[in-house]
């Protein structure tokens, strides 16, 4: 009788313990959602004092970013153009090179070469952005001075080139997965019909993997938009409104890193920086969401 009772008791205890552990794990999982909500609400909440007192249109299209001083002007267009120029030029280099390297890695290279190349890509992805920034500021800028003779040592091209290097490992890892997930029989059917490996690649594998490749491009562009340290160290950070790639520019991320320490808490400049952060958050969030969506659809198609 006693034994039976304690067994019952035991089972009861176990149930409580089980429920407790489930609750604990759930709490840990909830952290991720709460953090994301918190980020968004916090950016929005701290932007509101700025957005309510200023013309949003003026904020988005104004060409002068002067948040401090007696006559402040909060136009983020020069910052936005900085981000845009740097990201686009970086993409122009990173997309073809990254795709070429991906195709070589997954379709052409022998297993031995692959065993060298994959760690190289992983190391490139693992190098901190501040190291890339250091290289851009001290070495790459000198090369650009010699080749393009810009007016300033640090300029948007410098930032774009180093960003291109930083985009490549992300592109390669996502795009390689996409190429690998193309079913074997597609490839074999194409080869059996007499196509060369290049023709198979061009007309079968790449089209089949296209959504994954697009996602890789979007993800790496998101990384470029959000990159801070390499950009702040490489681009020179002038707030002038220009489309000249050889001029000094201040992308959105760099503006945050430079101006936040200057801003007095609770001032309009402080709130305006949260509005900049919100813009940045929305851009990268949208890019990631699109990439996620494309990838999810792509995976569904081949599973």
């Amino acid at each position: 009788m006693v034994a039976l009772k304690s067994k019952k008791n035991n089972r009861y205890m176990r149930k409580i313990f089980e429920g407790g552990m489930t609750g604990l794990l759930l709490a840990c999982a909830l952290v991720s959602v709460l953090v994301l909500l918190m980020v968004f609400m916090f950016l929005l909440g701290n932007s509101l004092p700025f957005l309510q007192n200023n013309d949003i249109w003026q904020f988005l299209t104004g060409t002068h970013w002067l948040p401090f001083g007696d006559f402040p002007s909060y136009g983020i267009l020069p910052l936005f153009v900085g981000t845009l120029m740097v990201t686009l030029v970086a993409s122009l280099i990173a997309i073809p090179v990254g795709l070429g390297a991906t195709i070589y890695l997954s379709e052409i290279a022998s297993p031995q070469v692959r065993n060298v190349l994959k760690p190289v890509i992983e190391i490139l992805a693992g190098i901190p952005s501040v190291i890339y920034g250091l290289f851009a500021a001290l070495v790459l800028s000198d090369w650009i001075m010699v080749i393009f003779e810009p007016n300033t040592r640090l300029n948007a091209l410098n930032g774009a080139l180093i960003l291109a290097v930083m985009m490549i490992p992300i592109m390669v890892s996502v795009a390689e997965e996409a190429l690998n997930s193309v079913p074997r029989n597609l490839r074999e059917a194409s080869l059996a019909l007499g196509a060369t490996r290049w023709e198979t690649l061009k007309m079968t594998i790449v089209p089949a993997a296209l959504p994954g490749i697009v996602a890789a491009i979007i993800l790496s562009m998101g990384r470029a938009v959000g990159e801070t340290m390499a950009v702040i160290m490489a681009t020179g950070n002038s707030t002038q409104f220009t489309f000249n790639i050889l001029a000094s520019m201040r992308p959105l991320t760099a503006a945050l890193a430079i101006d936040v320490p200057e801003a007095t808490v609770g001032s309009m400049a402080y709130y305006s920086l949260f509005a900049v952060g919100l813009v940045l958050f929305i851009i990268t969030f949208a890019l990631n969401l699109v990439a996620e969506y494309v990838l999810a659809r792509f995976k569904e198609a081949y599973h």
């Binding site: 959000g226 801070t228 936040v260 952060g277 990631n288």
Partner: peptide
């Protein structure tokens, strides 16, 4: 959501 968290620019985390 988790994947999107990973994509939030690190400077935005700094701002928050």
């Amino acid at each position: 959501i988790v994947n999107n968290l990973a994509g939030v620019p690190s400077i935005v985390w700094g701002l928050v």
